[in-house]
């Protein structure tokens, strides 16, 4: 039996003067014990809404959710004693210091004053926030804030962790640092559900990925399976001038394993291929022989955009946007 199981979750909102939004449209999900599952999707896909249902923050219109045999909707109190939640929606208190935030969370889990303090000290050390522990969170950098937020989710060392977009909006260095922390965390057997807009993040952290779009799971599998499902490798060309585009398209179609897609006003072309190195050398050879100048040519693995384009027919939104209120 899966540790976390959501079945047929439906959640609708009716914004003023706008049609009904189906934030969750029959979403089902299973997370086996001790594994990491990533919910991957663009802003508004329903990732945060799913996590909010599972962390007892909102009730779905219909459907069911069970964590370790406990019905989330019928017994939220018991669920709150076994989960840790971290992410954009469950904030830390900006006017408290890092230490005070963690101690407060410990007190609210009813660990008692002494153990709450002790646990806060442990986590401060673990997350390397010793120097900053007595500064108010308002002055923390983005990376430090995420660490204190994550530490807050770990106060009782819960068997289940929910991480909602743990690294969205962080600079690459802080992101890598946070991935290290999360990785060490999950290697210990905690069951984790994390949401992300980055395929790379899901790839690195998750055992299994559920791609969601418009409130439904549209594909599930490991990162490799998902990438394979959109056609393995691709060849990408950047032209100096976009004037011989039909010639380029013809060459790409001949060696590619699918449709050649132009972007950047016809200067950039991407085509899925089966045998990357062979296809790349042949394509570059023919394009050059046709007298077309190239800025750049190379192989690349499928991106989140490729996965989305393939699965949904539309591109994923710009993942650079934080989208605090995003479902």
């Amino acid at each position: 039996m899966p540790f976390i199981e959501a079945s047929d979750l439906v959640k609708t909102y009716t914004p003023k003067g706008a049609p009904v939004v189906r934030a969750l449209d029959g979403l089902s999900l299973q997370v086996p014990q001790g594994t990491v599952t990533a919910l991957l999707g663009p802003n508004g896909a329903g990732k945060t809404t799913t996590v909010k249902v599972l962390t007892t923050l909102i009730s779905p219109d219909s459907g069911s959710a069970v964590i370790d045999g406990v019905d989330v909707l019928a017994d939220p109190e018991r669920v709150r004693r076994m989960i840790g939640a971290s992410g954009q929606y469950a904030a830390v208190d900006e006017n408290l210091t890092g230490f005070e935030n963690l101690e407060m969370v410990g007190r609210l889990y009813h660990l008692g004053a002494k153990r709450a303090k002790q646990r806060a000290r442990e986590l401060i050390e673990l997350f390397d926030l010793v120097e900053a522990q007595n500064r108010v969170v308002k002055g923390f950098s983005g990376g430090m804030r995420r660490r204190i937020d994550l530490a807050g989710a770990l106060v009782i060392n819960p068997p289940v962790l929910f991480l909602d977009e743990p690294t969205t909006g962080l600079d690459p260095r802080s992101r890598l640092a946070l991935w290290d922390v999360i990785e060490s965390l999950v290697s210990g057997g905690t069951t984790v559900l994390l949401t992300t807009q980055y395929l790379e993040e899901a790839d690195r952290l998750a055992d299994s990925i559920s791609v969601i779009d418009e409130g439904r799971v549209i594909a599930e599998g490991t990162a490799d399976e998902l990438k394979a499902s959109v056609g393995g490798q691709r060849v990408a060309l950047t032209l100096v001038e976009a004037d011989e585009t039909e010639v380029v398209r013809g060459i790409l179609q001949r060696y590619g394993a699918g449709e050649a897609v132009p972007s950047n006003e016809g200067k950039t072309w991407v085509v899925p291929v089966e045998d990357g190195p062979t296809a790349l050398s042949r394509i570059v050879g023919e394009v050059t022989a046709a007298g077309i100048a190239l800025h750049d040519a190379g192989m690349r693995r499928p991106t989140l955009d490729d996965v989305f384009l393939q699965l949904t027919g539309h591109a994923a939104e710009d993942p650079g946007e934080g989208g605090k209120g995003a479902a």
Binding site: H110, L111, N157, V181, G188
Partner: peptide, 28 residues
């Protein structure tokens, strides 16, 4: 910004990545 401890350091203190050893803290 200071760096985050490596997973090795973290694991050795028993808080991260050590579910077997340190179980969930129960309320008083």
């Amino acid at each position: 910004m200071s760096t985050v401890r490596s997973s090795g350091t973290a694991g050795s203190t028993g808080g991260l990545g050590a579910r077997g050893a340190s179980a969930t803290l129960q309320p008083e």
